[in-house]
Computed example of a mutant assay.
Amino acid sequence: MQYSVGVEYALHCLVYLIDAPSEESVGIKDLAEFQGLSETFLSKVFGKLSKAGIVSSIPGVKGGYKLAKSPEDISFWDVVEAVEGPKPIFQCKNIKDNGYLYREGCCSAPSFCTINLVMLEAEEKMRNYLRGQTLAWLNEELERTLPKQIREDTRKYFRKSNI
């Protein structure tokens, strides 16, 4: 199981949007430059975040993106689902139905695949955990763990880019 790097970039960029004043937005160019990646790639990620209602797109020369909801209302799972889509990680192919006993007609009673049930339960536990981790929590955690100068420099970078 692996999430794309788009999830990581999305979470980092969304944290940068938390401190943006509500009447301002942050441009995709600035977000991409700060992260060291292509604008095209980040635009695709932000298109998905916008479609999911996590960010709002502001048109115009000074346009960009801002959070569409409060950081308390945006969970890690919201971001994962927006970027990766709703498809389950485990894709049961019902291979048991092709097994020897089913082919020979010895076992015809319908049954649930125990493997699928376990995998779906594990995914649900992971989703629930990620639903409990919000952007607000991440912001507080970064405030607590990162050197204050890094946080200040980050905020200055995005304020400067909007002037």
Rank of each mutant, 00 (worst) to 15 (best):
Lys160Cys: 08
Arg127Lys: 13
Arg151Asn: 12
Asp19Tyr: 03
Tyr3Asn: 05
Val5Ile: 11
Thr40Ile: 06
Phe34His: 10
Glu24Ser: 13
Tyr65Trp: 13
Val80Cys: 00
Arg144Val: 07
Leu17Thr: 01
Val83Ile: 13
Pro21His: 09
Lys125Asn: 11
Gly47Cys: 04
Gly53Trp: 11
Pro88Ile: 07
Val80Thr: 01
Lys96Cys: 15
Gly64Glu: 05
Ala20Val: 15
Pro59Ile: 11
Glu84His: 02
Glu143Cys: 04
Lys62Asn: 15
Asn116Trp: 02
Lys87Tyr: 02
Glu104Trp: 12
Tyr65Leu: 06
Asp153Phe: 09
Lys96Ala: 13
Ile74Tyr: 00
Pro86Gln: 13
Ser161Arg: 05
Ile115Arg: 10
Ser70Gly: 12
Lys51Trp: 03
Glu104Ile: 09
Tyr129Phe: 09
Asp78Tyr: 01
Ser56Asn: 15
Leu14His: 02
Glu152Gly: 04
Cys113Tyr: 03
Glu24Ala: 12
Arg131Cys: 02
Leu31Pro: 00
Ile150Tyr: 11
Met119Gly: 00
Met1Tyr: 09
Leu42Glu: 04
Gly27Met: 04
Glu81Asn: 14
Phe112Pro: 01
Cys113Ala: 13
Lys87Asn: 07
Asn139Met: 06
Phe41Gln: 10
Gly53Pro: 10
Val61Arg: 14
Ser4Asn: 02
Met119Phe: 06
Leu67Asp: 02
Cys13Met: 07
Gly36Thr: 07
Gly132Gln: 09
Ala109Glu: 14
Leu14Ile: 05
Ser57Asn: 08
Ser56Gln: 14
Lys66Gln: 11
Lys160Tyr: 07
Ser75Leu: 07
Ile150Ala: 08
Glu33Cys: 06
Asn139Phe: 09
Gly60Glu: 13
Lys48Ala: 10
Cys113Thr: 09
Met126Leu: 09
Pro110Thr: 12
Asp19Ala: 08
Thr154Val: 04
Val45Pro: 01
Asn162Glu: 08
Lys51Gln: 11
Tyr3Asp: 05
Thr40Ala: 14
Pro59Phe: 13
Arg151Thr: 09
Ala122Leu: 14
Phe112Ser: 10
Leu17Lys: 00
Tyr157Trp: 01
Gln149Phe: 05
Ser4Thr: 12
Phe90Leu: 06
Lys44Ser: 11
Val15Tyr: 04
Arg155Met: 04
Ser57Val: 05
Gln91Glu: 14
Val80Tyr: 00
Asp30Leu: 03
Lys44Gly: 15
Cys106Ile: 13
Thr134Phe: 01
Ala68Met: 05
Lys156Val: 08
Ile115Gly: 09
Trp77Ile: 01
His12Glu: 06
Leu37Lys: 08
Glu123Asp: 13
Pro59His: 10
Val7Lys: 04
Val55Asn: 01
Glu8Ser: 11
Glu23Tyr: 11
Tyr3Ser: 03
Leu135Met: 11
Arg131Lys: 15
Leu138Trp: 02
Thr114Gln: 15
Glu104Val: 07
Asp73Ile: 05
Ile163Arg: 12
Ala109Met: 14
Leu101Arg: 13
Ala68Leu: 03
Gln2His: 06
